Amino acid sequence: MAEGESVKLFVGQVPKNMTESQLLAMFKEFAIVDEVNIIKDKATRASRGCCFVICPSREEADKAVDACHNKKTLPGV
């Protein structure tokens, strides 16, 4: 992966009532995050309980993973 390429992380077990802005604020505590995209049902547009977090570099993505993977549980999951 070339330097400066963004990294897209898949995040599961996201409460269906959380918004993209809430998730963005949470992940920004641990790393630089460019964008959060909640995966939604095509028909109902309801959250499917997962999202993608886009970080500007592998280093920032690794910070987010290290801080959250198997360490942080979101309420209501």
Rank of each mutant, 00 (worst) to 15 (best):
Glu29Phe: 05
Ser6Glu: 15
Glu3Leu: 13
Arg48Thr: 11
Leu23Tyr: 09
Asp66Asn: 14
Asp66Ser: 12
Ala2Gln: 10
Glu3Gln: 10
Lys8Trp: 01
Ala67Gly: 03
Met18Tyr: 15
Lys16Phe: 09
Ser57Cys: 00
Val36Asn: 09
Ala31Trp: 02
Ser21Asp: 15
Val7Asp: 01
Cys50Tyr: 15
Val36Gln: 09
Ala2His: 09
Leu23Thr: 10
Gly76Lys: 11
Lys40Ser: 06
Asn17Tyr: 12
Leu24Thr: 05
Val53Asn: 02
Gly12Ile: 14
Arg48Asp: 03
Leu23Gly: 07
Asn37Lys: 14
Lys71Asn: 08
Leu9Gln: 08
Cys50Val: 14
Ile39His: 05
Leu24Trp: 01
Phe52Asn: 10
Ser47Asp: 07
Cys50Ala: 09
Pro56Val: 12
Gln13Phe: 09
Asn37Trp: 01
Val33Asp: 04
Met18Thr: 12
Ser47Leu: 07
Val7Asn: 02
Ile39Ala: 14
Leu9Val: 08
Lys72Glu: 11
Leu23Met: 14
Val65Asp: 09
Lys63Ile: 03
Asp34Pro: 02
Val7Cys: 02
Ala67Phe: 06
Gly4Tyr: 02
Ser6Phe: 12
Ala43Gln: 13
Lys71Gln: 13
Val53His: 03
Asp34Cys: 03
Val65His: 07
Ile54Gln: 06
Gly49Ile: 11
Met1Gln: 09
Asn70Gly: 06
Ala43Gly: 09
Asp62Thr: 10
Val65Leu: 13
Cys51Val: 03
Asn17Met: 03
Glu29Thr: 15
Asn70His: 08
Glu29Gly: 10
Phe10Tyr: 15
Val77Gly: 11
Asp41Trp: 13
Arg48Asn: 04
Lys42Trp: 07
Lys72Gly: 06
Cys51Pro: 03
Asp34Ser: 06
Val14Asn: 05
Val77Arg: 12
Ile38His: 10
Cys51Ser: 03
Ile39Lys: 12
Ala67Thr: 07
Arg48Glu: 05
Glu35Asn: 01
Gln13Asn: 13
Lys42Thr: 08
Ala25Cys: 07
Leu9Lys: 02
Phe52Lys: 02
Ala64Trp: 00
Ala25Lys: 12
Lys42Gly: 10
Phe30Lys: 06
Met18Glu: 07
Val7Met: 07
Gly76Cys: 11
Asn17Val: 11
Ser6Asn: 13
Gly12Gln: 10
Asn70Cys: 12
Phe52Ser: 05
Glu20Arg: 00
Asp41Cys: 13
Gly4Arg: 04
His69Phe: 08
Ala2Ile: 10
Ser57Glu: 04
Pro15His: 07
Cys51His: 01
Lys16Pro: 06
Val36Trp: 06
Gly76Met: 08
Leu23Val: 11
Cys55Ile: 04
Glu29Asp: 15
Val11Gly: 04
Ala43Arg: 13
Lys8His: 10
Met26Pro: 01
Glu3Val: 12
Gln22Asp: 13
Lys71Asp: 09
Val65Lys: 04
Glu35Thr: 04
